[in-house]
Design a protein around this nucleic acid. Structure first.
Lengths: 276, 276
DNA sequence: CGCAGTGTTGAAGAGCCTCAAAGCTCGTGG
DNA sequence: CCACGAGCTTTGAGGCTCTTCAACACTGCG
């Protein structure tokens, strides 16, 4: 699939409905292709968010040239599949998605949500096989970078190479928190923890409208993220409804202190991280 | 604590026995200090393992100068604590340990084991607060690197900077597998999965003696790694004893295909990864 | 209208946790 | 020499959390 022009879709495939067992991979192997967009980094609104560290002029110039273009995905489409060899990697620009891992029995784990500013696919670029499947829950736009030019990032702009390590380390940090949540917390604690983390991450991106943030997922996604059955996820959400409401793709936390208490969370906030 | 001379201990503190609730941090805040060792990278036996990619002569020279020295830990000692600001980061050279995260109620999660070749502390160096506590289960030796010189790694040796990103991505990959294991697998599946992963990683380092690898941990550690109670861990291990024996610090897998079947694992092997 | 996807609720059972206690191997001290 | 205690492993019993199965309500769509 070639890079397509303005207005057309960037490509992608419809994600399969959750198959009970076997035929989970009867999917097209088309890959979304990036399309060129002129001088976008300078205008990128993400860079203005306080969640991210600042760019130097030199870094900005370099990233403009390093960027290949944009990849557009519609809700439900897949960016790449677990096991794919990746020629590109991405930074999410808008919309929301998630990374999934599938087991041989058809079960799946939602490893992490993909929010604006998240860099994904780096592992798949380096190791020749993506560890996760990435799918969009809403329409999404990604900034796209080419595998073959990754070395330039280190030779031409050490600061950006440094940033990339920082990004990886921050992701690793968050994954370790997820591990602790899955391993040590009860269903209610996990749910409170996840709602707080999600809300916090989206708020830090400036996406909050009052107490509400957009969250275009299904209860099944949250269940797969927390390692809970769909039924129990529903009942756990119902039990927290006094403190958190989630309807029509909007998540509203009306009593964050209560949720923090339930989640056994300290109250610190994450330091600014780099954006690629 | 200053860098000490050959034969003396590198420092460290005794890890606390698992406190029931409150006083879990009544510990000295002494930090182990590295001691200089001349020209060690060229003779490092880890580099010869096929699990790692090769060094160029230039890279080797650079790492010799980049390295600060070695840090020695005795079994039970702590390298650094969750929340510490780190001036150093490390690559494990020998021995085994683990990274832990503690919850406010005293429970803990073993996030990942630390085996020779693993780079740790990078996240703590970049984010000003370590995400995990690192403790040694056997006597350990670490190669030590200084935070303040991290930028040199990117400006002087882009290849090593690239390697660092690769290392981070590989770790991120493995953590995502842990997440899937904790979220989707039953106790028996988790146990079989963990034993296979542990055995594989140690075998790839050339530490296997027949079907056995050294594994100097306690059932409590495995329980905290898998998110299971100690009692259930014991019973699950007993149920797998026909396929896996673990006694006197040695783990023996006598029937790997059976364990793979139980763990729902594909049979592929990980690609070579960089060593720092 | 029928159907697919999603959210909700109830009931029964399995898996895992907690509590409790006993055996084992150390090292220590009388 | 044996007694003693600490740390670890092992085993049993009871109960709670979470899963599975089943059914129904609601929505949007062909």
């Amino acid at each position: 699939m070639a890079a397509d022009v303005e207005g057309a879709q960037g490509g992608g495939e419809l994600i399969q409905p959750r198959a009970p067992a076997s035929d989970a991979k009867a999917l097209s192997d088309a890959r979304p292709a990036p399309r060129p967009v002129p001088s976008a980094c300078a205008r990128c609104s993400l860079r203005k968010q306080t969640a991210f560290t600042a760019f130097s002029a030199h870094e900005l110039t370099f990233m403009e040239s390093f960027r290949v273009g944009e990849t557009h995905l519609r809700a439900g489409e897949v960016l790449y599949h677990e096991g794919d060899a990746l020629d590109l990697f991405y930074t999410a620009k808008s919309g929301q998605g998630a990374r999934y891992k599938y087991l041989t029995n058809g079960d799946r784990q939602l490893v992490n949500f993909v929010f604006p500013g998240d860099t994904i696919g780096l592992q798949g670029v380096l190791e020749d096989a993506a560890a996760c499947t990435v799918a969009a829950a809403s329409d999404m736009v990604f900034c796209t970078f080419r595998r073959t030019r990754l070395n330039e990032l280190f030779t031409h702009s050490p600061d950006r190479g440094f940033a990339l390590v920082w990004i990886s380390a921050a992701e690793e940090h968050f994954l370790s928190e997820i591990i602790a949540a899955l391993g040590q917390r009860t269903a209610q604690q996990r749910m409170a923890w996840a709602l707080l983390k999600i809300h916090r991450r989206l708020s830090d991106l400036g996406l909050a409208q009052g107490d509400a943030v957009p969250f275009p997922f299904r209860q099944r996604d949250l269940a797969d993220a927390l390692g809970l059955s769909l039924v129990h996820t529903n009942k756990t959400l119902a039990g927290l409804r006094a403190h958190a409401q989630w309807q029509d793709g909007m998540l509203t936390l009306s009593n964050r202190p209560a949720l923090s208490e339930i989640a056994m969370l300290p109250h610190d906030q994450p330091p600014p991280r780099p954006l690629l």
